[in-house]
């Protein structure tokens, strides 16, 4: 992590409770940094998770995911304040 306004590393945040475990993001991720979690979410699905490292911020997973709010992708150099 760096100071506000500085260069942040790319990352992906998955809202586990909005994930239906379809696996399309995992299948599509070109750098293979997503995985199916063992835990069950409130809907009874195994949600996708981020391995924590290696996201390039390409956004492919976002556009494969059918849920509007389940995935948020942060590109390299995003500004933290944008996150609401």
């Amino acid at each position: 992590m760096v100071e506000k306004g500085g260069l942040e590393k790319a990352k992906v945040i998955i809202r586990e409770d909005e994930c239906k475990g379809c696996g399309l993001c995992i299948e599509a991720c070109p750098v293979d940094v997503l995985f199916e979690q063992n835990v069950l979410n409130r809907m009874g699905y195994h949600p996708a998770g981020y391995k924590g490292e290696g996201c390039t911020g390409c956004g492919i997973c976002f556009y494969q995911c059918p849920e509007p709010g389940a995935i948020t992708v942060f590109k390299k150099g995003y500004v933290e304040e944008e996150v609401t």
């Binding site: 976002f62 509007p68 948020t72 992708v73 942060f74 590109k75 944008e82 996150v83």
Partner: peptide, 10 residues
């Protein structure tokens, strides 16, 4: 945009 997320149009 540097962040790809749920659109305001939802």
């Amino acid at each position: 945009a540097k962040i790809i997320r749920k659109s305001d149009s939802f």
